[in-house]
Computed example of a mutant assay.
Amino acid sequence: MDIGTLRGLGTLMVLIATLGVLLWAFSAKRKAAFDEAANLPFADDDRNDSRSSHP
């Protein structure tokens, strides 16, 4: 096995890993979890607003 074959196999493994991550990230099953995670930074804003309105 020469260096060209090893590089080709390495490239193939990286391609497969990239496609796996893309499929996972854009999977319809994960949409609800990603939407919830996207709103996490705003979760504390609701609690802070209610505390600041009551002295």
Rank of each mutant, 00 (worst) to 15 (best):
T11W: 14
T11S: 14
I16V: 11
W24F: 14
L6A: 14
L19T: 11
R51W: 06
A25L: 14
D49F: 00
G20I: 02
T18M: 14
S52R: 12
A17W: 11
V14S: 14
M1T: 08
W24N: 03
W24K: 10
F34I: 13
S52A: 11
M13Q: 10
R30S: 05
D46N: 01
G4F: 14
S53T: 13
E36K: 10
K31G: 05
V14D: 14
F42M: 01
V21L: 13
P41H: 00
K31P: 01
T11G: 15
L40G: 01
L9G: 08
M13Y: 13
A25P: 02
G10V: 10
T5R: 14
M1Y: 12
L40M: 04
A25G: 09
A17G: 11
M1R: 06
D44W: 01
R30H: 12
M1G: 15
S50P: 02
N39K: 01
G20C: 04
D2M: 09
W24D: 05
N39M: 05
A33P: 00
F26T: 09
L12A: 15
R30K: 13
G10W: 14
V14N: 10
F26N: 10
K29Q: 12
K29Y: 07
I3N: 12
T5P: 04
F26I: 07
V21Y: 07
S27R: 07
P41K: 00
D35G: 07
A37E: 06
G8E: 11
D44V: 07
L40Y: 06
F34D: 07
R51E: 05
G8Y: 14
A17D: 05
F34R: 15
G4P: 09
S53F: 10
T11P: 08
S27G: 11
F42V: 03
A28P: 05
R7F: 12
N48L: 09
H54E: 12
S53D: 09
N48T: 06
T11N: 15
M13I: 13
S53P: 03
I3Y: 15
N39L: 08
P55Q: 08
K31A: 04
A17R: 08
G20W: 09
A32T: 00
T5E: 07
G4Q: 14
E36V: 04
W24Y: 12
L15V: 06
A38D: 00
R7N: 15
G20R: 08
R51C: 06
L23C: 04
I16N: 01
V14Q: 13
F26P: 04
L23H: 04
H54T: 13
F34N: 05
D45S: 00
R51Y: 11
L15N: 13
A28L: 08
I3K: 10
G10C: 13
S50F: 04
